[in-house]
Design a protein around this nucleic acid. Structure first.
Lengths: 227, 227
DNA sequence: GCATCCATTAATGCATACATTATAGAATGC
DNA sequence: GCATTCTATAATGTATGCATTAATGGATGC
């Protein structure tokens, strides 16, 4: 019998399995394209197969891995085509969110989260802190979707952001400093604040399309497949 | 997401559980808002809790039900707000699909599925066969998404179509005969055939927005919550 | 009579044991 | 030597049993 750490939080095993597997995938400890047996993962997480299996099924539903009976679970690689698909979905759903956010008539204080994210991105660009920029960028997009007020959109975008994050790990250092990007963010922000749904939607759409092109070009140029 | 081959071999218990639970939900045997214990469902499907539990987790991920520890799983009701969210997502993703389908430059024979669905809807309207119309309408939309070529979009739309189908069971007999609707479909079809992405997108978007309004109005007018 | 606490109960979450089955490799026949 | 078949193995899929824990109801004290 193994003694538990005293500060152990009361997280259920399957929740832990889900979180830990996610971390292992994002950290690259479980590289894209690699295969792993349920029992192996269970041993690694020091729990039985049952909760691990539940987490695996969830992650399969989220498109992070694939069950291949008798061959183990395969961590799914992301090809440029995959990223293209994901960016297209994000483009549509975030643009919808921008539209709805503009129509919702939010007060300035409701938009503080957006504004702060934009400011943080400016600061990050100024100090060339790519990690801080990525974090603030992600915050901007998730805040935008939250303001859109559609819980289904939030769920889908949250799922796909996971995948984008995987790709970003690789591409972040290869892309030019995102200077233009924040100008776009500010324009989206202004349009929402002014209740101009049409501009908010169109501006965000253009922003996402440009971002997609940058990422896809990098992935293809460097023949990056596994991220 | 992937269509199963028609030659069904002995499918696994968890697959059966998934299919059967779906059927029970759609048939109304498990009404929206009702609670059910894992063990009760397992007994009903004549299998152990394990595969039932796996199916339940999958269905939870698809938003059909909710796990409430110690209270059983609750079949989720669909409020007008839920339907509004779902229609908004479908509007965006199907419009994207129409756009991409138009750009893809399909040959006429590739579009046969669309055309047949439209013809079938015409026939169904002529004979006032609402069920046939609903089936063909669903076929049109799923074919459209298939032509769009984005597998993520296909997956999301497939999931949400399940929910729309639940609502449609109730609203179908309450709505006016969908005559205008098929005129829209034909215009989308023509735009795709002619490679006019802009028109395809805009037309389909308008179509979906109109459909959403009809459904939501009915749901609210009749105070329908559980479907 | 009311509130609080404790005990009982029952449902889930997890572990484990078992059944099923695909696959690799050996063995046998040609 | 090659192919085919059979067998052993191992991984998944499923069943079952046990532990944990939330909820309910009763009992007790005020």
């Amino acid at each position: 019998m193994i003694l538990e750490p005293l500060v152990e939080k009361t997280l259920s095993s399957s929740q832990r399995a889900l979180a830990e597997l996610r971390k292992l995938i994002f950290s690259g400890d479980l590289p894209a394209g690699s295969d792993h047996l349920e029992s192996e993962l269970a041993a690694r997480l020091e729990m039985s197969r049952t909760p691990v299996r539940e987490a695996i099924l969830t992650l399969e539903g989220q498109g992070l891995l694939e069950l291949r009976p008798r061959k183990g679970v395969r961590i799914l690689p992301l090809s440029p085509d995959d990223m293209s698909e994901i960016y297209d979905v994000l483009t549509e759903l975030e643009s919808l969110s921008a539209d709805h956010a503009a129509r919702a008539g939010y007060a300035p204080r409701d938009l503080q989260g957006l504004e702060r994210a934009i400011d943080d991105m400016d600061a990050a660009v100024a100090s060339s802190d790519l990690d801080a920029w990525a974090e603030a960028d992600e915050r901007f997009h998730s805040e935008l979707v939250r303001l859109g007020g559609n819980s289904r959109v939030m769920g889908i975008v949250y799922m796909m952001s996971d995948q984008v994050r995987r790709a970003r790990m690789t591409t972040l250092t290869l892309r030019p400093l995102p200077v233009q990007s924040n100008e776009d963010h500010r324009r989206v922000y202004r349009a929402i604040a002014e209740g101009d749904a049409k501009t908010a939607r169109a501006t965000h759409r253009a922003h996402r399309r440009a971002a997609k092109k940058i990422i896809i070009d990098i992935l293809e140029k460097h023949r990056l497949r596994f991220v």
